[in-house]
């Protein structure tokens, strides 16, 4: 195995594109090193992108934020502006692993690991965030939900990697929230999860919504009917029930050591309801 730490995006692309064997990008390493330890992945080349300018910075852009691909959970959690605007995105990201893992893990890494249960992903999907991808043919912006295509598989081509994630500007009276279910209070992989992103009108009626669910399908899913269940309501009981039903209906989970189909299908609706109420309150809505 070779270890390289290029100082420019172009050089990183060149290294990744020219490697004949297996190449892996290293940002936080909290998935990659575990996979290497178990022998699941044996890369011929590891490209550490942390020396590249911009990879570790958060920059305001067009009313939103551009977050470098190597910004850790701990770093983003300390960014008061991002926390204020996108609390659901940050709380999802900050739920990954332990305090120690937060010192290293990245949103781009969580996204590219392509686990259906990645905690950073549902909120990014609900936020309508985009990933900037650099590659041999230059840069392109891709919506978050286009990145993973199945468990452990992503749509990026050879030589491509994510350089940043962009959180867009948002209207007044908007906020988001993320909840996951785990058997313990910390340190587990989500059994089911839900992110809700809301914008309210002046009277507290939901005017825009995006709802995403995790760990209940091969990839994180944006649930359009769930959003429709909320729009035009003030999150009354019927709206919440419809939201839960839409999320459960969108679920297509598996039985595994972490949960059953029946359990995941039910709990994802419960989580969506609870997350919606939190997002609503954060957006200034009063019940």
């Amino acid at each position: 195995m070779r270890y390289e730490k290029p100082e420019s995006t172009a050089e990183a692309v060149r290294l990744l594109a020219n490697e004949a064997g297996l190449a892996r990008v290293l940002a936080g390493g909290t998935d990659l090193l575990v996979q290497m330890k178990s022998g699941m992945v044996e890369p011929d080349l590891v490209v550490d992108i942390k020396q590249i300018a911009g990879m570790r910075t958060v920059t305001p852009e067009a009313g939103g934020f551009r977050i470098g691909a190597a910004v850790s959970g701990a770093e983003l959690g300390e960014n008061a502006e991002v926390v204020a605007q996108w609390p659901g995105v940050v709380e999802g990201f900050n739920l990954i692993g332990s305090t120690q893992v937060q010192g290293r893990c990245t949103m781009a890494g969580n996204l590219c690991n392509a686990s259906p249960a990645g905690d950073a992903v549902p909120s990014l999907v609900a936020a309508n965030a985009t990933a900037r991808v650099a590659g041999p043919n230059g840069e392109r912006d891709v919506t978050i939900e286009q990145i993973p295509v199945g468990p452990g598989r992503i749509s990026l081509a050879k030589g491509e990697f994510i350089t940043s994630i962009f959180l867009p500007a948002r209207p007044a009276r908007s906020s988001d929230a993320y909840l996951r279910f785990i058997p313990r209070t910390e340190m587990d992989i989500a059994v089911a999860s839900a992110a809700v992103n809301l914008t309210l009108g002046e009277d507290g009626t939901v005017t825009a919504a995006r709802v995403a669910v995790g760990a209940v399908a091969p990839t994180v899913r944006l649930v359009e009917p769930a959003a429709q269940a909320l729009i035009g309501t003030k999150l009354d009981e019927d709206a919440l029930a419809a939201l839960a039903a839409a999320c459960s209906a969108a679920a297509n989970p598996i039985n595994d050591k972490r949960g059953t189909i029946e359990y995941r299908t039910h709990v994802v609706g419960v989580l969506a309801k609870r997350a919606a109420l939190i997002a609503y309150e954060r957006a200034g809505g009063r019940k």
Partner: peptide
């Protein structure tokens, strides 16, 4: 700690 940040040293490469 690496540069003051708490991490698991098993999840950091020596080269980093």
């Amino acid at each position: 700690t690496v540069n003051g940040r708490l991490v698991c040293s098993c999840l950091v490469l020596g080269g980093e």
